[in-house]
Design a protein around this nucleic acid. Sequence first.
RNA 1: GCGCUCGUAGCUCAACGGAUAGAGCAUUUGACUACGGAUCAAAAGGUUAGGGGUUCGAAUCCCUUCGAGCGCGCCA
Length: 561
Amino acid sequence: MTPQELSEHLHSCVHAAISVGQLVLDINDVPHVIVVERPKNLEHGDWATNVALQISKKAGLNPRQAAEILLPYVLDTDGIESAEIAGPGFINIRLSKASQGELVLDIVEAANSYGKSDSLAGKSFNMEFISANPTGPLHLGHSRWAAVGDAIARVLEAHGAHAIREFYINDRGVQMDKFGASTRAAALGQPIPEDGYHGAYIPVLAKEIVANDPQIVDLEEPQRTIAFREAAYELQLADQKRVLDLFNTHFDVWYSERSLHESGAVDVGFAKLREQGHMFEDGGAVWLRTTDFDDDKDRVLVKADGELTYFASDTAYYVDKRARGFDVCIYLLGADHHGYVNRLRAVAACAGDEPDDHIEVLVGQMVKMMKGGEEVRLSKRAGNLITLEDLIDEVGVDAARYSLIRYPVDSPLVLDLDLLVQRTSDNPVYYVQYAHARIASVIRNAADLGVISADTQSWNPADFDPSLLADDREGQLIGLLADYPRVVTSAVELREPHRIARHLEEIATGYHRFYDACRVLPQGDEPATPLTISRLWLCAATRQTIFNGLELLGVSAPERM
RNA sequence: GCGCUCGUAGCUCAACGGAUAGAGCAUUUGACUACGGAUCAAAAGGUUAGGGGUUCGAAUCCCUUCGAGCGCGCCA
């Protein structure tokens, strides 16, 4: 019995108690999904439910009384070995070995689809993240969303959603001109303008631009600066793409802000807003009345001099995304942009949408990097910036992605580079990957011994006897595997993939403990036994679950390390 | 000044309103002639920043004080 089946069964228990009048309760007051969780304290059983606590008030009972009424129904179930009331009114449930062990077969059979669902089938998400200026390398500040944004998209897809990863290129405006002027100055051996870009990458770019097109230096101004700007833009954007590919984050759409203007999307967006009646003129400028929807001030779309603001692009871009058919637009912003949350939601409202349904703005806090006990400062305009590529070079893609994903994004994060490079349990990615590689090794060895085939899909389920998996650690490991789909679901709903990473760490611990206490393969000349085979099934199910989880994080699951 | 986010073990961090607030690191102590020791077992470490409130139950929700980061442009 899976926890999902148990949850559904509990629902029917409540209904049964209502139908015979033991519980006086409106059916609508029964929670739609009854929570079934692993108790923190494993002595409490395999699963626990708080359903009695949840319905007691509506039923006019205290929680323990409600639990007393439900208990006989719970006990009278195939596969449930025991159940008892504990604490304020929890019902703790212990499954029979056979019932619990069925899950192992389910996982091996489900293979790559274990933990997936179609709960979001037919729903379409636009995930916009990073969206850096193409005026420099991606740095540490971008890296958190590069990892987490991609993981959220993977998790949405695992639940059947259509999720597009979109990078908005801020290729319009004065910062591009400063970028062009900076590379031109570097190429001509002139001092870089005070308000330009001073990173060490500028002279490198300048050299490459001139190498590609030696005549560029002979152009007249202002054509020369423009030519530098465009050449630098092209090179820098290509570099950002290259590094993100390296990082295993692949964008489906690279959307240029310029193209938004060239395609007429801005006009379309303005027409939409005008139609909704939230645009007005004041002081020669055109405004959007975002204060109608919780913004703290109205925003200018067109300046008095006729120039469009950045905000104008933002609004048009939102309208354009919705016109492209996305049900939900998710924005992943850095903490320095948290002031945008209300205005973006107001944009959606001004466009006639319901912000709670069509737009989600997630804010990620800063990442700090420590090395040798000191903070490594990063500044886009200074020479010593830590780039995403530096991070990859330093610790590798897997460790970098995993370390950025395993923490919720709403707290500032401090990473210690010295620890990240260590291949110890201090670095949880290796702990999880090691468990995977270790299992792969056991199954390889089993195949070498002729105990079983290396292809788990060809194993005969009839050889698996769950009642043999009687050790506590085996039961705990199975419970952790059973809980995995629920964890993925919560990661999807809350947009918090770190939950998966944390659960994989628990599974890895569960496996190492099992491995330490329960010998899998026969020793010496001993023959393989039914227990050997049953434990190999458990190994295979564990390997599959870890593999699936790591895939959702974009981290590799090595067979060997 | 206003707003947003945050404050949990020495450090880095968990905990969807649930049971005795948990991991890792660091510290101390154990376990290999066995399938990968990149492992396992154990000890110690807490007034969840302070104070009120809400309820069967609060680190979590509300109010307040203190502290930290960030943001408040007809810039992009």
